[in-house]
């Protein structure tokens, strides 16, 4: 091989090496530049369900905002404490947790999830079996009642408040009340009454609606003893240190989501709202959460609890 050809080959090899190194470094820089943030998602039933539901939405937000959002599934009872430690930049919680974080850490309201007939709102109901003869709040005295999780606005707080308003103290006037163990508590309370283990259940209006839609129960199976006023459903919030511009972009992305919005997630194209079991998002105001504030005060629950 002549010296000239050797020189050309070496030059080409050197150039290729230089280009490869350059592109790799540029790639590293691009990854480095993409900020990382964490979104805390309150577990409704289980961690696996939370990840499956919100994975695509989380990815959608990451792609649209150019931020690597880490999906953190959080137990309801631990949420406030972990938020106080600064673990999350954005939050997805029920409306009671929103109030707690708002009062304690000035959480910013972004958007409220729409699901079911009441849209971005829901309600708590007290139900009994149709053949039980339990039809009014006055009939609850001395009965066995099954609540949902303690920090559930439509599975505990609303019903507790309903009873207090009717002059029934759940701590004294019921024969017994309990909360089911494990996941899928809302369905468990409905079945607890359906199969006659308990007299009365504190069921979210949305869960009754969904179970009827799925054909698991019928509307004629139960008496609706009482239903609370309506109040906001699950809510996205932003920590106070998040810049206004980013928080607003985050909000607009949620509000712009339609049933046709898709994202590539784990090599599949999926519908964002469908995956998350959400109909859409609404823009409510903090004052719209006042019914929850009133209920929490009346039931002596956080963030207004007094000992």
């Amino acid at each position: 091989m002549s010296l000239g050809i050797k020189f050309i080959l070496k030059s080409v090899a050197g150039l290729v090496l230089l280009l490869l190194t350059g592109s790799l470094l540029a790639g590293c820089d691009a990854v480095k530049e993409r900020p990382k943030m964490r979104i805390g998602y309150m577990n409704c039933n289980s961690e696996a369900e939370t990840r499956a539901r919100f994975g695509p939405l989380n990815e959608y937000l990451s792609q649209k905002l150019g931020i690597d959002f880490e999906l953190v599934s959080v137990d309801t009872q631990e949420f406030a404490e972990r938020f106080h430690k600064g673990e999350f930049d954005f939050t997805h919680t029920n409306s009671l947790l929103y109030i707690i974080l708002r009062e304690q850490k000035n959480l910013r309201l972004l958007a409220t999830e729409k699901r079911g007939q009441y849209g971005p709102r829901t309600a708590g109901t007290l139900i009994s079996r149709k053949d039980s003869g339990i039809k009014t709040l006055a009939d609850l005295k001395g009965k066995y009642l099954l609540f949902g999780p303690q920090l559930a606005p439509s599975g505990f707080l609303a019903q507790y408040d309903l009873m207090l308003q009717a002059g029934i103290n759940p701590e004294q006037d019921l024969a017994y009340y309990g909360i089911p163990r494990g996941s899928f508590k809302h369905e468990k309370v409905v079945y607890g009454v359906y199969f006659g283990k308990y007299d009365v259940a504190a069921a979210p209006a949305l869960d009754l609606e969904l179970m009827i839609r799925d054909g698991k129960i019928t509307a004629d199976d139960f008496n609706i003893i009482a239903q609370s006023e309506i109040f906001p459903y699950c809510t996205f919030g932003a920590a106070r240190q998040i810049p206004d511009e980013l928080a607003e972009k985050f909000r607009m992305l949620l509000l712009d989501l339609t049933p046709e919005s898709t994202v590539t997630y784990q090599s599949e194209t999926v519908k964002v709202l469908d995956s998350a079991w959400i109909d859409g998002f609404a823009q409510l105001e903090d004052a719209d959460y006042d019914p929850i504030r009133r209920m929490a005060k009346n039931a002596n629950m956080p963030p207004y609890q007094e000992f």
Binding site: Q117, Y118, E209, I212, R213, A219, Q227
Partner: peptide, 29 residues
């Protein structure tokens, strides 16, 4: 009204997208 809305949801299974149901739902909501 809560029970009425649930009954409406049940009927929606048999007659989805019925205008009469939408009007009744509007009134109840």
């Amino acid at each position: 009204r809560a029970a009425a809305l649930l009954k409406l949801e049940e009927l929606e299974r048999d007659f989805p997208g019925e205008a009469h149901a939408s009007i009744l739902r509007g009134s109840l909501l």
